[in-house]
Design a protein around this nucleic acid. Structure first.
Length: 114
DNA sequence: CGCCTGACGTTGC
DNA sequence: AGCAACGCCAGGC
């Protein structure tokens, strides 16, 4: 695993590179990232990558939620509310561990291609 | 070296 | 329309 987020061919690093690109106050889904990486069927890997990513402060894992906009991985943070508070601090409405206006706040990795 | 698990997603019943 | 099962791939034991 590379400490920096350089253009490494590693799947994990690939995920980090995308997550880091997520604009402030914006969120995306595991599936979107997986699809962007070409492994649309491997959405689980994205979540798995985030698990390892949570050790990297540079990777805003709190901006990544599941397809339903639910903070599924919040339990993996320092505190169960860290993820929700982090999103709220960015202007993302989070109620009951769910992102409000998810579609509106949703950020598609495709913009990286533009 | 093989089995189990895991922050998801999709399809089938 | 709600619930269950399968698939996917990689890491840990």
């Amino acid at each position: 695993m590379v400490d920096k987020l350089g253009p490494q061919p590693d799947f994990f690093t690939r995920v980090y590179a995308v997550v880091v690109q997520i604009p402030h106050g914006r969120v995306t889904s595991y599936g979107a990232i997986a699809k962007f990486l070409g492994a649309k069927s491997s959405s689980r890997m994205v979540g798995y990558a985030m698990n390892a990513a949570h050790t990297m402060p540079s990777v805003p894992a709190h901006r990544v939620v599941n397809r339903a906009g639910l903070l599924t991985g919040k339990h993996h943070f320092s505190t169960p509310t860290a993820m929700q508070e982090a999103l709220l601090a960015e202007g993302v409405c989070v109620i009951a561990d769910k992102v409000q206006d998810f579609e509106a706040k949703f950020w598609d990795p495709e913009v990286l291609l533009k």
